[in-house]
């Protein structure tokens, strides 16, 4: 029997969907014979006392969640998300560099530094990537700071805003689709597959439209119904980052899968597990073993 720590924060505990998912995870771990502790940021030192740590709060190398992950590694404790996965996935530049290095197919992508954010630079980017294109600030999450631009003026305006937060930003070919595949991968193996149905009002899986948050619908899809190249691409993308838990977003255009991003700390509360009843069991087992239960 082991002890599983779940690192959470107020935002996570304040969301009924996320809280429900956490309770299900706790119940699964307890059913497997493990003890579960929720660890809050002010208790981060308690990380040293558990046998496995599952991080369920926003990840970023500058956030307390990264401190929790690093402390776990310093103490030899298995952790999801591990610090390297946080470092890579929380930074789109680093993430795309890893995918490119492993020849994982992504939309045409350029990294722009401050000196390239000029009118002639913008024209050149449109000439390379087409029009419209997508700009991303590298630390974007929940589709924040991801914007579609169609003109040089728009590109310059958005890029100048993003470059205040990062010395490099991402410019990417725009690929249109009515849904994204979300391929969940754990330890280099398929964990689940889902479709994220993009709201008609936007091109993102989450957006603010007329002051209202709109979310994608989640449809869990059995593995047998997922095109083989989509699963293979998702697994390859995850392996390009590490052996942790990832949610890989994929768009299929002209029958070709393109990885849009690899998310550490992927959402599990949207019904992703509907077709995968062993999802929580596998996550717990990866952290603290099968247990006596």
């Amino acid at each position: 029997m082991g002890s599983l720590g779940i690192f959470v924060d107020r935002q996570v505990m304040g969301s009924s969907e996320q809280l429900t998912a956490l309770i299900r995870l706790r119940d699964q771990a307890e059913a497997m014979g493990h003890t579960v502790y929720f660890i809050f940021p002010v208790e981060v030192r308690k990380v040293a006392r558990v046998d496995g740590l599952f991080i369920r709060s926003r990840t970023d190398p500058l956030h307390i969640s990264y401190v929790a992950a690093k402390l776990a590694v310093f103490h030899g404790i298995p952790v999801i998300d591990d610090p390297v996965s946080i470092q890579v996935c929380s930074d789109k530049v680093n993430m795309y560099l890893h995918l490119m290095n492993r020849n994982v197919r992504i939309p045409e992508t350029r990294f722009l530094s401050k000196r390239e954010i000029t009118r002639s630079g913008a024209e050149e980017v449109f000439a390379t990537l087409g029009r419209p294109l997508i700009l991303k600030e590298p630390s974007t999450s929940f589709s924040l700071r991801v914007e579609k631009v169609e003109t040089v003026d728009q590109l310059l305006k958005v890029a100048k805003r993003f470059i205040k937060l990062s010395d490099w930003i991402v410019a990417q070919q725009y690929l249109s689709s009515s849904y994204d595949w979300r391929i969940g991968v754990l330890d280099g193996k398929l964990l689940y597959a889902a479709q994220y149905i993009i709201p008609s009002e936007t091109f993102k899986i989450q957006d603010t439209v007329n002051g209202h948050l709109v979310y994608c619908a989640v449809r869990s899809i059995p593995a047998a119904e997922v095109p083989r190249p989509v699963i293979e691409t998702g697994v390859a993308a995850a392996r390009a980052i590490g052996r942790g838990l990832y949610g890989v977003d994929i768009k299929v255009c002209d029958d070709t899968p393109y990885v849009i991003e690899v998310n550490d700390n992927p959402s599990l509360e949207g019904g992703e597990d509907t077709s995968y009843p062993d999802l929580y069991h596998r996550v717990v087992a990866a952290l603290v073993g099968e247990g006596p239960g």
């Binding site: 990264y66 390297v84 930074d91 680093n94 560099l97 290095n101 590298p138 010395d167």
Partner: peptide, 29 residues
Amino acid sequence: SFKTETYYRIVSLEVEGKTTVPSSCETLE
């Protein structure tokens, strides 16, 4: 610092397989 020109120079070298001093991990630590 994270996401500075220096940080990205280090990350780019690391992804190319080079050993940098410091590593990107060390800068965050």
